[in-house]
Amino acid sequence: MLPKVNTMLYYHIASSDESEAAVEYKSRIADEEEDGLLIEYPLNEKTGRTKRLYLGDEMSVFFVEADGVKHYFDSHVIGFKEDGVRLVKIMKPDPEKMTRVQRRSFLRVPAELELAVKISGKGRFVCKTDDVGGGGISFLYREPQGLKSEDAIQCWLLLPYKNGSVDHASFTAEVVRIKELESGRRQAMIKFIDISDSERQKIIRYCFERQLEYRNR
């Protein structure tokens, strides 16, 4: 499903500045042309200020259907148009490369990211994730760490984005299951039990960038 005129788009604009890349903007689709969508200038909801865009600016975009399903895609600025107000023209998404996510579900992607884990009363260790999602992750580690099912752990996850910026997400999680692998390592599957919306959004953003990267290969 492609977005239609009057649909509200939400997006992050690629930037080498970490704080700028983390800002979410929104704007309405004002018109449609054969090769592009004409959108109003993006608005930062927190500050109420509009964002000036330039030819070639890249963005990660999503829109939401009435039933709560989200559609994610990558786009970039391909031009501008004066129509009473100045509009920005962005590339139409390729339906085959869009990612669709049901309400209350979170995409999981395979990823080897650095994760710091702190177990209450048992110290801390650094390991690598096996997969990452908006509802939880799994990671690989070696004993002895004293980790067991139902443990509550504090975690700090390193998130490198495709624009070159790096961010961290912190959260409290519960160990759901531990599996011993043939390699001698163990795989811990954890679910988030205390994570802010902003921290979860950082992880979700990373997941969708990875998913779009796989689809573009």
Score class of each variant (00 low, 15 high):
L2K: 05
P3M: 04
P3H: 02
K4E: 12
K4Y: 04
V5F: 08
T7Q: 12
L9S: 04
Y11I: 08
Y11A: 04
Y11G: 06
D17M: 01
S19F: 03
A22H: 06
A22M: 11
Y25L: 06
S27R: 05
A30S: 08
A30H: 10
E34L: 13
E34P: 00
D35A: 12
D35T: 08
G36L: 03
L37Y: 12
I39D: 00
P42S: 02
P42Q: 00
L43W: 07
L43S: 08
L43K: 02
T47V: 05
T47A: 02
T50I: 02
K51A: 11
R52T: 02
L53G: 09
L55I: 12
E58Q: 15
M59A: 15
V61Y: 10
F63M: 00
A66G: 01
A66S: 03
D67K: 09
V69I: 14
K70Y: 00
H71M: 07
Y72C: 11
Y72L: 06
F73N: 05
S75Y: 06
H76C: 04
V77M: 02
I78Q: 10
K81C: 13
G84P: 09
G84E: 04
L87E: 07
L87F: 09
L87Q: 05
I90T: 12
M91V: 02
K92F: 05
P95C: 11
V101R: 08
Q102R: 15
R103Q: 14
R104G: 07
R104A: 09
R104K: 15
L107R: 00
P110H: 02
P110M: 07
P110T: 05
A111M: 06
E112C: 10
L115W: 07
L115S: 08
L115A: 14
L115K: 09
L115T: 07
A116Q: 14
A116R: 15
I119G: 02
S120V: 01
G121A: 04
K122H: 14
G123C: 01
G123T: 05
C127M: 01
D131H: 14
D131C: 09
G133S: 11
G135F: 00
G136V: 09
R142F: 15
P144C: 03
Q145E: 11
G146S: 12
L147R: 09
S149W: 04
A152N: 10
I153A: 03
L158A: 06
L159P: 08
P160M: 01
P160K: 01
N163P: 01
G164D: 10
G164S: 11
S165V: 13
S165R: 04
S165G: 03
H168E: 09
H168T: 12
A169D: 12
F171N: 05
F171Q: 14
T172R: 11
T172L: 13
E174D: 10
E174L: 15
E174Y: 07
V175H: 13
V176Y: 03
R177W: 06
K179C: 10
L181E: 14
E182P: 05
E182Q: 14
G184N: 06
A188M: 04
F192G: 04
I193F: 12
I193T: 14
S198M: 13
E199H: 07
Q201G: 06
K202C: 06
I203S: 09
I204L: 06
I204Q: 08
E209P: 00
E209N: 07
E209W: 05
E209G: 15
E213D: 06
E213H: 05
R215S: 00
N216F: 08
R217H: 13
R217T: 08
